[in-house]
Design a protein around this nucleic acid. Structure first.
Lengths: 340, 340
DNA sequence: CTGAAAGCGCTTACAG
DNA sequence: CTGAAAGCGCTTACAG
């Protein structure tokens, strides 16, 4: 890159000290009681020389980079890319920039990303943490770097976080299926210890119990993050062909999309033979032969609240941690239908 | 943030100069001929003190931030978020980090993002440029900062870029429709001067001409980026109800999704009454009642090549500019069917 | 109202 | 083989 004009350059240009220019550029002419005349002169010179401050130098001096590190499982997943968009917008409004990384639900990758971002002195983290990474989050907290968890969270970890009430959202979805006359309700979830997923399973089981429907272990199909397609092809297929259930509840949009492909390939009628409900959203939900009923999380709220919490903590490091519960509502459409 | 241990700290810890530690931490012990013993001592001390270099300080000194600025129209659009994921992965392999921003096809927003990223001294840009922003790109080039354009490009601008052959990709799609017996072929495109879109329209018109099908202006529907939904609802609807065409070609995935909603709401049979083909991909394409035929751009190639070009230029600023044409292939499925 | 100077944490030519 | 020193471009307490 060609030599850029520095603060010193503009100072020299009008024979004045760098300090003056710095004050003026940062709108501190009042505190420093710079004369109006001088302010004008400096502003003109800066514009003339097309001065743009070097934020790296500023960061080094100030110890703050105005950068937020965002770590999600996969930025190409629409759930996360939509949140990323909101975070980016909100951050920009406040003068922050966001760098991002995808962990692939892999603790080691997440740890690498945290290290890389730490090394670049991000002012704060927003993380949808992978399984078994509570120590990583604790380490960030120990360094007194702000972090807010989104989507996922850890029991007993005192940290800012933003997520829905997974238990209730799940329970409501299953209630809807029961209400529509379904008794043989399966669930496709991820095989993970992550609490948000446990809560979704717990909500499912709780409603079965409440409605006196026996929980059948083999109807709670668990797919691993790494081998999701394979697990859907074998484990889920096992209860779809021949069809043993009359309703299926998907714990995420990625599971739903994989499941819907299996369902349509097998020619299963939805909702006739099988009612379905999913978590999250997908463009595909509108176009499935039976528009899919889903639990809608407000991605806008998640992104906004995450940035809000980050900024609050940046301004007041010692305030106590907050958990923001974001709204989730069931968008009822044809796929959960009440006719067998 | 708590005080981190600096290079000086580890130097002091073993009573040695900062220079030595710097050489060792950067693997330059050979060039600086540091004794093996010392190397070991330093490495142990660094590990003990959990030393992590401050990359901001390094950046200031080196004039390089190992950061790539990525600007796309909208990071939440799967087309871009998928490319972003690839870019992120490739960049990470090379020790780069990516900061991103969404321009919303708005020249002013793009300009802001370029300024913000410039101010943060990104080493290079990867941009899917908005309409009428050739000057912005030229300005980056004038500063001798590497930039590679993806997806879109400008006539006559000498710059690295990666995109498909839009003319041929479009022509092939329309040929397929003609081959399947369609004669009244409409197109839904964006109303923009951007060359990639012009090329798509040109391919469409060229095939009509070649096959002696009269081009009808009212069947080339143009939607504005800003009011896409409205334009689809009115302008596209005008040729769908009553149905005046027997095939419809969508210039992007976003247009397709909007158009497909209109089509399904109107109860138009696909491909029976109307054959459709789209550019790009969408999860929805698999689930439309007639799986959608589409022009598949290799997002992996776009992302990879973009990063490759960026790095090449970073290593050799003066090499001449390359345009990489990435493969596009037609994925033929039911929706472009040959039965009326 | 304005300037000189220290210092943020690094790298690297230079001297020894 | 190792250290002292300058300098990257800023900010800000201090002195005048």
């Amino acid at each position: 890159m060609d030599k850029k004009t520095s603060l010193k350059d503009v100072a020299n240009h009008i024979g004045v000290s760098a300090a003056l220019v710095s004050y003026v550029m940062n709108g501190k002419e009042r505190e420093a009681r710079v004369s109006e005349e001088m302010v004008k002169k400096i502003k003109i010179a800066a514009a003339e020389l097309n001065y743009q401050p070097n934020l790296i130098a500023k960061s080094l001096k100030m110890g703050t980079t105005k950068t937020i590190g965002l770590i999600v499982a996969d930025i190409s997943n629409p759930f996360f890319s939509n949140i990323a968009r909101i975070i980016e917008d909100e951050a920009k409004k406040q003068g922050y920039v966001v760098i991002f990384g995808s962990s692939d639900e892999n603790a080691a990758k997440q740890s690498d990303l945290i290290d890389v971002f730490t090394t670049r002195l991000v002012d704060a983290f927003i993380i949808a943490p992978a399984m078994n990474t509570v120590d990583q989050i604790q380490q960030i907290l120990d360094k007194n770097v702000p972090v807010v968890l989104i989507d996922r969270f850890f029991p007993g970890l005192d940290v800012d976080c933003v997520h829905i009430d997974n238990y209730n959202a799940s329970a409501n979805a299953v209630k809807q299926l029961v209400k529509n006359g379904r008794k043989k309700i399966g669930m496709l979830a991820y095989d993970t210890t992550q609490l948000h997923m446990q809560e979704r399973k717990r909500g499912y089981k709780a409603i079965l119990k409440e409605r006196n429907i026996r929980f059948r272990k083999e109807w709670l199909v668990e797919a691993s993050y790494q081998e999701m397609d394979k697990d859907v092809a074998t484990k889920l297929a096992a209860i779809l062909q021949p069809l043993q259930i009359d309703a299926l509840f998907f714990a995420t949009n990625s599971l739903a999309v994989a499941g819907m492909k299996a369902i349509s390939k097998m020619g299963i009628r939805v909702p006739g033979e099988l009612a379905i409900i999913s978590f999250d959203e997908s463009e595909a939900f509108d176009f499935f032969y039976s528009p899919v009923t889903y639990v809608s999380q407000s991605l806008t709220d998640i992104g906004r609240e995450a940035v809000r919490l980050v900024l609050q903590r940046l301004h007041n490091k010692s305030r106590k941690h907050h958990t923001v519960i974001v709204e989730a509502r069931l968008v009822v459409r044809e796929s959960c239908g009440n006719n067998l």
